[in-house]
Design a protein around this nucleic acid. Structure first.
Lengths: 111, 111
DNA sequence: CTGTTGGTTCACCATATGGCGAACTATATA
DNA sequence: TATATAGTTCGCCATATGGTGAACCAACAG
């Protein structure tokens, strides 16, 4: 079987870590350089850079370097893609339970 | 630093795999026993059971056994939690870009 | 030029993940 | 009772993940 949505793999994987989610939350308040972003976390810079690499590989953030400081910012497109998938699944689920509820409450179900 | 939303960890991790997302998609069409669920996939039953275990640990599915067949069904609550987190982030992002757009278009930005 | 700062790279380690095959249990069914 | 079926468990393996410390490069600052 082939993977139909390889983007979702990397996006969900990137989101499955509290450090990375926190980075996104922080970046929503505005762009920031690497060291500033790393401050709240107990780990070393190499480990933190790996997290940033995961986020960037997933397309959730972008970054560019000028001088010796690399500035990161969020890119919400992939975030929206993940949300869209979830919304679609929920729609299916709700449609199903709605129909189920309708059936249970329908006269036909009473026979 | 402590993990504030351990549920999101497991939910996003569970969703970061095409096999597991496909299982959810399949289960949205209705409950099904383990072997039926495993049919579309090339892997063996032991490997597939691990995927089901991941989904169940994340609270995305529930299952119960009667006789020798275990029937699985989705539990959409955690799915909704993941969607809620994403929606919240997007709201922050949109609020920010909206304000940014407003600023760019404002007279003050022209000075 | 020298030192410091921001970031990067490297080698390494422990654990988790995702797969396998083989053996096993328990429930139908003939 | 014998046999097939549904699922489970076990030991094993390769690779991925998340962290470390140490060395390193590039750009400011003095």
């Amino acid at each position: 079987m082939v993977n139909q949505q390889p983007q979702l793999d990397s996006v969900f994987h990137a989101l499955a870590d509290p450090t990375r989610r926190a980075v996104i939350g922080r970046l929503l308040q505005g762009a920031a350089p690497v060291t500033t972003l790393s401050q709240p976390f107990a780990m070393g810079l190499p480990a933190f850079l790996k997290h940033l690499a995961v986020l960037e590989a997933a397309g959730l953030i972008r970054s560019e370097k000028q001088g010796r400081v690399r500035t990161c910012r969020v890119d919400a497109a992939r975030l929206a893609a993940a949300e869209a998938w979830l919304a679609e699944q929920r729609a299916l689920w709700q449609g199903r339970t709605d129909r189920l509820a309708a059936f249970v409450e329908s006269p036909a179900a009473q026979e």
